[in-house]
Amino acid sequence: MTDDRNGYPGNGNGGAAGGAAKNRLAEIAAGAVFPTETHPELDRETVVLDVQGFNLFYGAKQALYDIRMKIPKGKVTALVGPSGCGKSTLLRSVNRINDLLSTVRISGDMLLNGDSIYGHGVDVIELRKRMGMVFQKPNPFPMSVYENVVYALRIDGERDRSTLDEVCERSLRGAALWDEVKDRLHESALGMSGGQQQRLCIARAIAAEPEVLLMDEPCSALDPIATNKIEDLIEQLKGEYSILIVTHNMQQASRTSDYTAFMYLGRLLEYGPTATIFQTPHLRETLDYVTGRFG
């Protein structure tokens, strides 16, 4: 059993014994930290977001363990893993929304296009303006549909009506919502259905044209048609935008993403091209998870 660990990394390619896999998971549960199995394809990509040995604690409880991860520019990266493994936490750390919780402590740093995110003297507000985020639960603001979409522009002081109108329409079209709300742009956003609200939040996130788009299970509240539309949107955004998306839906991950990262109990276990991760991952645990054998 120990020699299986010696063979790490590389040859776990479906060949590892079931017992060994269980053992690794058990060791992680007991507190062990393994280096991430990062596939070499990632070295050829330009990096937009570079996570460098990031740890996060909720009070005394550690939620992220030494995350090292380079998010490629213009690509879609999916974060998968069992519930409670820290996907949302990682996502919320990228735009420092977790700062709002007084119990959170962190160590390590991340770089956004080379600029430190957690360094001294970083302007957090400026930083957040460079990212967009879609939350797990829809959170429209208590204002009209229109004002929701152009919120980021409003707080930047944009007043030009034609610019706002144009951004609003483009973003709503992008989020596959335009046709449904074009006649009620000035009604309260709180009167929409849950799925519409979620697409509104997506429109709001893309309105500011962020460098990185963070999406936390954006489709969990959507019907299959809207889900398709969102996946189409992700397809279109690819190239211009770098997207980090959390999903529990393996089909969605394999359909939409270029790279997939597998997280388990706060650790990043394996990170590589989506096709490889879903068909021939290096780690037994990854295969077990993506094929639905645990998690």
């Binding site: 957040r128 967009g132 639960k137 959170n139 603001f141 980021a152 939040c201």
Partner: peptide, 27 residues
């Protein structure tokens, strides 16, 4: 006022006072 609204506002790059004035107070 749900915290998720505040978070959404911060995620859009709003400052503390902007969030209070535009989201928290109206709500």
């Amino acid at each position: 006022v749900p915290n998720s609204m505040r978070e959404g506002s911060f995620a859009c790059g709003a400052g503390k006072w902007q969030t209070i004035r535009r989201i928290v107070l109206p709500r």
